[in-house]
Design a protein around this nucleic acid. Structure first.
Length: 271
DNA sequence: AGGCGTTCCTGGGGGC
DNA sequence: TGCCCCCAGGAACGCC
């Protein structure tokens, strides 16, 4: 399930192949994949189609043109990769971009949750997302203020994209475990020291995960190797195995509607 | 305000 | 072996 590190990995993989190339058309295979535009509208808005930049904001891949952007959200099973001219489309391709150099950028998505958006600029996405956890404006103090201002389940808060951008189920569980905070804690009851530690750990975990090309649970990259952070996971997916810190068996519970892995012995519940 | 259920989707796993 | 049911979950939305 692509979260910040996986989306960043995709951007890192495709960026050099796309920069300064020209998009001639964007074609839907499955009709609902375009959230707010049509092929014709895209052609008109991308104005010649030269790609100026490829980047990430939250869990979106942003392809920037002179006067518009295309934003791609992979959701659960989306993949984005380049194909040579004569290579066959995958069975699960839901859309493709045709480049002037005859390569195709494929959006492949088994579960069809992924969507492509067309905007004038990044504004609409910025508006509904919190800070980037790896940017300088995500400080220990800003996280503390945010967490204290809500009386809310801490895991639900970490997953809320309007609070902090980019964390998903895996990295929320990993961050909470490393910080010894039970995911069912109430945000405003978590002590300041623990939040300072959580802030530090979110940065460390995401940075390490990007260095390892993310976590492969569902294989999100086609050309590249699988994400090696899978080997670094300390809690996610380890139910019935022993906690790395205290040997207590890890349990799987449900928090905020998600499968959640916890060590009930060393993750403290603040209520 | 925030929690919770529902929807969108399909492959895969468990149970029988 | 085969079939059915349910589960996985990011985000939006409606309801309480």
């Amino acid at each position: 399930m692509p979260e910040l590190p996986e989306v960043q990995t995709v951007v890192n993989q495709i960026k050099s192949d796309l920069l300064n190339e020209t998009v001639e058309s964007i074609t839907p295979i499955w009709p609902k994949v375009f959230h707010n535009f049509t092929s014709e509208k895209a052609k008109q808005k991308i104005r010649g189609g030269q790609i100026i930049d490829v980047s990430r904001r939250a869990k979106f891949i942003i392809i920037r043109f002179a006067e518009s952007i295309i934003a791609i959200h992979l959701r659960m099973t989306g993949k984005l990769y380049l194909l040579q001219e004569n290579q066959a489309l995958s069975k699960y391709a839901t859309a493709y971009f045709t480049l002037k150099n005859k390569k195709k950028l494929i959006f492949d998505d088994v579960r069809k949750f992924g969507r492509i958006y067309l905007y004038k600029n990044i504004g609409p996405i910025d508006k509904r997302h919190g800070p980037e956890p790896l940017e300088n404006d995500f400080t220990s103090e800003s996280l503390f203020k945010l967490i204290k201002s809500k009386k809310r389940n801490i895991k639900a808060l970490l997953l809320d994209q309007s609070m902090i951008a980019g964390l998903g189920n895996i990295y929320a569980d990993e961050s909470l475990w490393k910080s010894k905070i039970h995911p069912n804690s109430l945000s405003h009851k978590v002590p300041k020291k623990k939040i300072e530690n959580l802030h530090k750990n979110i940065k460390i975990i995401l940075t390490n995960a990007i260095e390892q090309n993310g976590t492969t649970i569902i294989d999100f990259s086609v050309n590249g190797e699988s994400g090696k952070y899978t080997n670094e996971l300390k809690i996610y997916g380890r139910h019935n195995l022993e906690c790395f810190r205290c040997d207590n068996p890890i349990k799987k519970i449900r928090v905020a509607g998600r499968g959640t892995y916890i060590c009930s012995k060393c993750q403290k519940k603040y209520k």
